[in-house]
Each structure stands twice: as C-alpha cells, then as structure tokens.
C-alpha cells in the first residue's frame, strides 16, 4: 500500500499505446512503491515496459489506468525534483561539458547565472570530471559522456533520479566502474533511484530492491529485497548465497521467456 512517505508509488498502473497495428498494452496492473532514498532496480526483458514506468514517473506520459504518485501527489506533469539519465548520454555536441551540465538552467529559465556555473563545476568535480569542463562531448569516452549525463541530471538537485539503462551502451569494465561510481554519488547525497536495467548482476550490486517484470504486457512478477549490506564492492556477489540469488532471478526471467 502507498503511504505518505513513499517517494514514488504505482497503484494498479496500466498503459496501453495506440499504434498503427492496434492497441498495445505495455503495462498491466503494476503496483510498486519506492520509499524515499531507496534504490530500486527494475529488471526485465526488452520491451516489457520498463522504460514506460520511467516515463510515467517523469510525467512525460499519463497512465491509461491507475495512478502514479510522487511524494503522495498524482503525477500530472513533469516535476522539478526529478532528474533523468538516458541510455545514451544524449549531450549537446556543440556545448562544452560545463554548458551541458548547466543546460537544464539555461533551457528552463533562459539564462545561466554565475551561481549556476559554480554549482555546475561543483557537480562536475563530484562526478569525477574536474579538468574536463571546457571539453566537447565528442572528445570524451563513452563512460565520461555518461558521467556528464549524470551530472546534468543532478544539476537541479533532484530528490528522485530516473535512470533508463544508463550504462548499457558502455563496455563491460567501464560499466562496472560506473556502477560503483553511481553508488558513491548516491551514498554521498542520498536520492530515490529508479534504475531500469536488463542486467541481473548490475541490478543486484546496485539496488536495495529488485523488481522483476514479465514480458509484454509488463507486470511485476517478483519484488525482492537484495540480501546484501553496504558498502558493496566487486567481491559482493561471490558468496554462494548471492550466486543463488542471481540464479533465482535468472530463473524468473528465463521461465517467463519460455512461458
């Protein structure tokens, strides 16, 4: 049940899109609640409506059934206290790292103050990008670009961070490093994180809870607390207990695939 303290709550949420080939049900009967500062990973096969959950929370689309609430209020339009990180960094290629990070201010208010710039440089440093302020995105590696994407999402100091497979375009090593980097940022400045992924180890190493979704129409098939303390590191998943947990999640996804 949703309570007043929930940062995000989905109550019987269903989403049907009208397409040229008739209606397409992306989500059906989804009930999930995220407590404030909780890190929740949504795990599921491609096309199970994971990203739809994110767009509903962001207020970019409206649910066709049920209610999505943020801090107890039904979402009717985009909110200022939500930051989004996309699968691709989608930076502005003509703007420097700093200009990309202050872009939310420039775009929202039409101008950038000296305070905005100072704030941006602070976030850039926090995200491990100090010294790269004047570089263009094309000069950065994929991992660095996604750091800029995260810095941009953090610029307006959101309470909620929505991440749509943010590391899936990166190589495996960078991907792991970025995961721990994200945990570091999250622990330094706690936020409610809704993290969409299709990688089981990534979901488990990062999140407090893993919500497993079925293939389309997406529904929640299991909502599991990750039996791991914090801080976590590369060795966190090596125990027999964790390997069993990973195997259980894999089983859920494969069983769904066959059915």
């Amino acid at each position: 049940m949703s309570t007043e303290t929930d940062a995000i709550s989905f109550a019987d949420v269903g989403q049907t899109f009208l397409t040229d080939n008739g209606p397409l049900t992306a989500l059906s009967g989804v009930n999930v609640n995220l407590r404030r500062h909780e890190f929740v990973a949504v795990l599921g096969p491609s096309g199970c409506g994971k990203s739809t959950l994110l767009r509903l929370t962001a207020g970019l689309i409206k649910p066709t059934e049920g209610t999505v609430s943020v801090f107890g209020h039904p979402v009717s339009q985009p909110r200022d206290d939500i930051g989004i990180v996309f699968q691709q960094a989608t930076l502005l290629p003509w703007a420097t790292v700093e200009d990309n990070v202050v872009f939310p201010a420039k775009h929202k208010r039409g101008r950038v103050s000296a305070k905005d710039r100072a704030h941006a440089r602070e976030i850039i440093a926090t995200c491990g990008l100090a010294g790269f302020e004047e570089r263009l995105p094309g000069e950065l590696s994929g991992g660095m670009q996604q750091r800029v994407g995260i810095a941009r999402a953090l610029f307006l100091n959101p309470d909620i961070l929505l991440m749509d497979e943010p590391f899936s375009a990166l190589d495996a090593l960078t991907r792991d490093a970025m995961g721990f980097e994200l945990l570091r940022l999250w622990q330094a400045s706690p936020k409610t994180v809704l993290f969409i992924t299709h990688s089981i180890p990534e979901a488990v190493i990062l999140a407090d809870r893993v919500v497993v979704m079925s293939e389309r129409p997406g529904r929640v098939i299991e909502d599991l607390k990750v039996p791991l303390g914090r801080p976590r590191d590369e060795s966190s998943l090596r125990s027999v207990e964790m390997q069993d947990f990973l195997a259980h999640l894999r089983g859920l996804l494969i069983k769904d695939k066959v059915a």
Partner: peptide, 8 residues
C-alpha cells in the same frame, strides 16, 4: 523528453 521534463 529532457526539454519536456524541464517544462521549457
């Protein structure tokens, strides 16, 4: 989407 989420 970023632009819309900022209500610009």
């Amino acid at each position: 989407e970023l632009s819309r989420s900022l209500r610009a």
